[in-house]
Design a protein around this nucleic acid. Sequence first.
DNA 1: CACTTGCGCTACGTTATCCGTAGCGATAGC
DNA 2: GCTATCGCTACGGATAACGTAGCGCAAGTG
Lengths: 85, 85
Amino acid sequence: MVLLDAVGKRWTLRILWELRGEPLTFRALRAAADDVSPSVLNGRLSELRELGIVELGDDGYTMTEAGRELGDVLMALNGWADAHL
Amino acid sequence: MVLLDAVGKRWTLRILWELRGEPLTFRALRAAADDVSPSVLNGRLSELRELGIVELGDDGYTMTEAGRELGDVLMALNGWADAHL
DNA sequence: CACTTGCGCTACGTTATCCGTAGCGATAGC
DNA sequence: GCTATCGCTACGGATAACGTAGCGCAAGTG
């Protein structure tokens, strides 16, 4: 239930989705995610960093190893969407 | 992106999670999901019905066939949470 | 040295969304 | 008629998200 509460907030899934590939800077991530406001983006990134899903490296924000596995689940989610929506 | 926007709202994942088993009435679903307010619950259920994920039968709300496959993905999501959080 | 550029991030006032509570109309059983 | 439960709605207050502007910092350029 903890994860569903954390992930079940506006923009969180979208942010994770945009980080599925290469690292993105704060501003690039913002641009990729429909120009979400920086305050919200920063709030979400803080949560995701505390959960050990995302981290800030030299090239920008990237997924941790655990986060990358979560990314695979998101791919499955997207696969479902392609098949049914 | 459509699904992520739809699912990436507060309570949506939680509602789907509670519907993974047997059908639940509106009120039972409300009780199961931390007493979410009926206005929000109704809003989410309307969205999920429009997406063909959830439907209202004689025994209450239940997942459609497509929705049940989505439930499997959510199980994977929960499995990840158990492993990493 | 000043100057620019891009970075992560914050401040703040406005607006949209959620929330809690109460209650509606409909249906079924007594 | 009375009670109980159903799905669902109304409404005012609380909360979160929003858009915009800008801070402090580091690296590069002249």
